[in-house]
Write a protein that binds this DNA or RNA. Sequence first.
DNA 1: CGGCATCCACAGTGATACTG
DNA 2: CAGTATCACTGTGGATGCCG
Lengths: 210, 210
Amino acid sequence: MRSYGQFCGLAKALDVVGDRWTLLIVRELLLQDAARYTDLRHGLPGIATNLLAERLREMELAGLVSREQAPPPVATALFRLTPRGRELEPVVRALGAWAGPLMRQWTPDQAFRSRWLALPVEFYLTDRTPARPPVTIQVHTGDEPMLIETVLGAVKARPGSAPDADAVLTGPPHLVMGLLSGRMPLATARAKGLHFRGNFAAVRRLQPKR
Amino acid sequence: MRSYGQFCGLAKALDVVGDRWTLLIVRELLLQDAARYTDLRHGLPGIATNLLAERLREMELAGLVSREQAPPPVATALFRLTPRGRELEPVVRALGAWAGPLMRQWTPDQAFRSRWLALPVEFYLTDRTPARPPVTIQVHTGDEPMLIETVLGAVKARPGSAPDADAVLTGPPHLVMGLLSGRMPLATARAKGLHFRGNFAAVRRLQPKR
DNA sequence: CGGCATCCACAGTGATACTG
DNA sequence: CAGTATCACTGTGGATGCCG
């Protein structure tokens, strides 16, 4: 991208991360820690492969991303965020928070990956009663099952399944998020097509921060 | 800009503010409150006039900006941020903070506007001893003189001159910021071409937050 | 002068095909 | 799997013109 040529922090930051796709690549690497090229492609539906290659090169040059050759069993390149790249987390967080009101509708033409749930869940949810025994919520939405767990007051999300989860949510992502955030009552979510099974108290443990 | 088509907060936010120049227009309106088209052009060196017009139209449509017809003495359109637009301040702040390390060099080919000082000053500086009488620092750098003042523990910056300022700084912007942030010792700044006059204790009142 | 619209050369983007 | 190559298309920036 052409530089703005302005001596201003915002402009300088955008000179580096303002390119199309760049911050979404940061998102994927915040979520995956180390990712192969193909993992990134899967997490970035819509990206052209040449653009992904070009962005990774630029981001490596800018010191945001490191590329390492994985040991023989894998024998492929792994991409990670450098510490400097990980410092973009507050930027991703701020943009995500701002987008909250834009996330109440979902249409099937919008691509969705289950892992993306982890960002809003970990950034904006907290455990209302951290002293009580931890809970596990199974979520079926998107491309792979996800687990949401309370850990020492925080809420974590990761891909996985737990047959003994306290609650199981199945349905489109905006209903899942509406319910998890406490914004949408269970009855409403159900009426709109969410399937819920288990102990709803486990869901009520979650609460937006602040 | 073409939509990413992803149901993800970050992607949705970038669908709205990811266009080139959009966040810089937000910056100008955070700094100026109400700005005429020409003010915006001056604050956005390098922007093509058709692009500014197009962005303003898009931002109005997205609910970020409002356009009002100023009363007869001015008789021109004034642009403001809507409340929704002003909620982008944390995004601008996060990107600006991330850019900190990129702001230590300045070359004359980089455009600079004195008003831009207000963002780092008000976001990241605080008054070390708020109980003591307020201080005023006059800064000469960029296109117009600026005043930096301590107000109830906060630090404010605005265009203007005060003949009785406690301190006067004259020189290139990176030296001014280096000195104000306390990162650069006075001797170093002077050696590099900053002119300082007055009471240095006034400058030492300022301190990066946290 | 303020507030654009138009035109043009060019750089960035995205779909597809291809390669080691 | 991990890209590179190609190419049509779109967005950008610079210049200029127009109109109240």
